[in-house]
Design a binder for these strands. Structure first.
Lengths: 151, 151
DNA sequence: TGAAAATAAGTGTACATACATATATATTTG
DNA sequence: CAAATATATATGTATGTACACTTATTTTCA
């Protein structure tokens, strides 16, 4: 569906303006489908992201700042997302001995298991909803990085 | 900046997976810069979006459902965004006479004025931060719409 | 070395989203 | 026409974001 039809307007300043709205809508669209798939696994997209980041270092632990620096949304409030993962026993949180200001977070076995299932749901839905070839995706990546002139 | 550097990882399943993360990050990046510009004008991005939609019909009013159907994030809670705009006297809310279930929203003169200033801030920042030509933006629009295979 | 600055994490509050539910009104239909 | 259904909006609650501030700890350097 064209963005004109999604937003019910043709009132764009130019193609660049249209592209910015298209990026915002596509992001919303992705999150919407993603969260539907993850909900079946009892996770929100942000909880999933934190678990995915932790798996990348497992069995090592990560401090909150390290997790935050790998989040897509940089100002995510990682301590509060971790709060909810701790309640569900998907991660463990302990004070660091080397630097007592830090808390070290570890994904648990239960966390790994739930993440595994969630990842499968996600891959499955992505195969269904995404319509790009790898080569088109390459061009898209290049254009998005060009869009972000200053970073 | 490449998405690999932003997320401090090269652990992508394929280019399509990388592209989805790139879309999510670019959307965050756009919102981040946009909200900085709008903050100077005392508006949030969603409040700005609602005002922009209302200006499109001004001097006609719009009902809540019509506004919602033009929002980028479809499940935005429009009544509550309107609450805040009413408090700031940027919009007026009256019950419809034809259909008493509807509330009709009108942008006020103050709203138009504030929107005008905010739009200028936004155009200015966009000229600074966006690095695409119109032709590149056209390709980007095409690829984003191809990414969204089912809509 | 001891005071000042920097750093890591957590907390309080306003705004927004996601979703279920409530309320009022309008439309449909038996 | 009255009851059932549909529609438009609003509200309650959990989650998340943005940002300012607090607390605990570590590092810096006069």
């Amino acid at each position: 569906m064209k963005i004109e039809d999604v937003l019910k307007t043709t009132n764009f300043k130019d193609e660049v303006h249209k592209a910015t709205l298209n990026v915002l809508y596509t992001s919303y669209w992705l999150k919407d489908h993603t969260s539907s798939a993850l909900k079946e696994n009892g996770l929100t997209t942000e909880q999933f992201n934190v678990l995915r980041i932790l798996r990348g270092k497992h069995p090592e632990s990560m401090c909150v700042r390290d997790i935050a620096s790998r989040m897509i949304e940089r100002s995510s409030n990682v301590p509060r997302i971790i709060d909810r993962l701790v309640v569900k026993k998907l991660v463990k949180r302990v004070q660091s001995k080397e630097d007592k200001r830090e808390t070290l977070i570890n994904i648990t076995e239960a966390g790994l298991k739930q993440l595994e299932q969630a990842s499968k749901s996600l891959e499955s839905i992505n195969r269904t909803i995404l319509g790009l070839t790898n080569q088109e995706a390459e061009t898209l990546n290049m254009l998005l990085e060009k869009l972000r002139k200053i970073d």
